[in-house]
């Protein structure tokens, strides 16, 4: 990821977001208002088509009386702030150890082949961005993709291809495990303590 910052258009919060900033300011004492920097950056990223531009950082720095470099430090520290434009569909693939052990390499390959781009890249039409992320915190359902604030879990190469094809078709795939599993329950029903399964318990995907 390039850390160079380049000038782009100016930025201002929408009136609704400006109204929302008041709720954040109210959380902290006046002389500690720098604490608002992370929620502000996040909200600004949402408003600014998914990325944090230089004018965004300077706008927020001015709002919070912070030196520009301090906001820049925060924005570059956290990988969830995108520092360059992203596509309409941001697909984040987890490749941390549990996902990797469970086959994230296949998932990555499927994504790259289907989209024709590598990590950190955006398709030429500006539609899709593929990102590699650190642990998404859903290791029990590894491997995992995060897309539009939902997790797509228990992926294989085939289910990943199907997932992307569905997005390309303009649909929103159903989130959750993609192998028929119910949440993080054992696939095919319980394997232990079978006699003690509470009445009416759902295990999904069973025979």
């Amino acid at each position: 990821m390039s850390m160079n910052v380049k000038d782009t258009d100016s930025f201002e919060f929408t009136p609704e977001n400006l109204e929302w900033t008041k709720t954040q300011f109210a959380k902290y004492p006046e002389n500690r208002k720098e604490s608002c920097v992370m929620p502000f950056l996040h909200r600004a990223q949402e408003q600014n088509n998914g990325w944090v531009s230089v004018p965004v950082m300077e706008y927020i720095a001015d709002m919070l009386d912070m030196p520009y470099i301090r906001v820049h430090e925060v924005a570059t520290f956290y990988s969830m702030y995108n520092l360059k434009p992203v596509g309409k569909h941001v697909i984040e693939v987890c490749t941390t150890t549990p996902c990797w052990l469970r086959g994230s390499d296949d998932v990555v390959r499927a994504c790259q082949e289907e989209l024709g781009i590598g990590f950190g890249e955006t398709t030429e039409d500006g539609e899709y961005t593929l990102l590699e992320v650190e642990c998404a915190g859903a290791c029990v359902n590894a491997p995992v993709i995060a897309y539009k604030e939902e997790y797509y879990e228990d992926l294989s190469e085939d289910s990943t291809r199907a997932f992307i094809k569905e997005i390309k078709a303009g649909k929103t795939p159903a989130p959750g495990p993609q192998n028929g599993r119910f949440k993080s329950c054992p696939i095919g029903g319980p394997t232990t303590l079978k006699d003690r399964a509470p009445a009416g318990a759902e295990f999904g995907g069973g025979e």
């Binding site: 850390m3 910052v5 230089v54 030196p67 520009y68 470099i69 301090r70 820049h72 430090e73 570059t76 520290f77």
Partner: peptide, 19 residues
């Protein structure tokens, strides 16, 4: 003159002036 900072993190941390 707070224009120096450390951007990025971990192995990618870099010292720079703003812009």
């Amino acid at each position: 003159v707070p224009s120096l900072g450390a951007i990025g993190r971990g192995e990618n941390m870099q010292i720079t002036t703003y812009n």
